[in-house]
Design a protein around this nucleic acid. Sequence first.
DNA 1: AGAACCACCTGGCAGC
DNA 2: TGCTGCCAGGTGGTTC
Length: 267
Amino acid sequence: MPELPEVETVCEAIKENIKSRDILKFNIFNPNLRWRIDKKINNNISNNHINRIYRKGKYIILRFAHGSLLIHLGMTGVIKLLNNHNKTSKHDHFDIVFKNGNVLRYNDVRKFGSVHWVEDLKKHFLTKGLGVEPLSKDFNFEYLYKISKQKNVSIKNLIMNQKVLTGVGNIYASESLYLSKIRPNKKSNRLTKKNHHELVLSIKKVLKKAIKSGGTSLKDFKNIDGTPGYFKQKLLIYGKEYCQCGEKVKNIKINGRASFFCTSCQS
DNA sequence: AGAACCACCTGGCAGC
DNA sequence: TGCTGCCAGGTGGTTC
């Protein structure tokens, strides 16, 4: 579920709302996530101080002096801020308990998320190969064009490849391709230079706009205080039946993922 | 080597 | 009502 804007929203909310950065303990309720939660995380973070809270791609990173806590929300991961030790509910997996009583609680219905203690992010198997950040200046025409030409995949798969571009998922890939009038199943090496220029701009535009709206709420995404994001109302093609031009929207599978596009507006 | 497919898991919904 | 089948925002690992 959560793509870059949702993770960014959660990250910012944690920064703003956590009044203490000193951790008391790490409580595990259900260790079964994509990878079993390591009990040793408690030893690594209890009685330690978070120096920095930030996002890399779809990962939330809590940085300590001697390593980082790496959190991925998978499809249905939700982080809530609680002010006391509320009793746990179904699908709660762990708490990060702060010394002032604040609690960050991770809930994940489908268990596709993860949490790891990582000493060196550059060497960890989940983070070492991550591509460029879409909102950074490293993501530009030259970068995308070069990779596009050397790959033989659909452009949608290319921009969703986290080793190429980190943070873009199924919704924002569809939206960006719609904005730049490119069909999602078009092979990346067949796009024109103009296509690439427009796609880079569209991806940045869509992501920025979504962050401004607090992310997209379909079924599961909720911000840290339980409020939903409002980008869903602004989606132009994902999940739509008709395009703004009046044409019926096509929904095809690309690599098993629903891919929406307009046969009239996109070519 | 690179691309496509599968598996992991739960819940919601449509159709019968 | 209840059962079945299909669908869902992700991605590492396996297979082709």
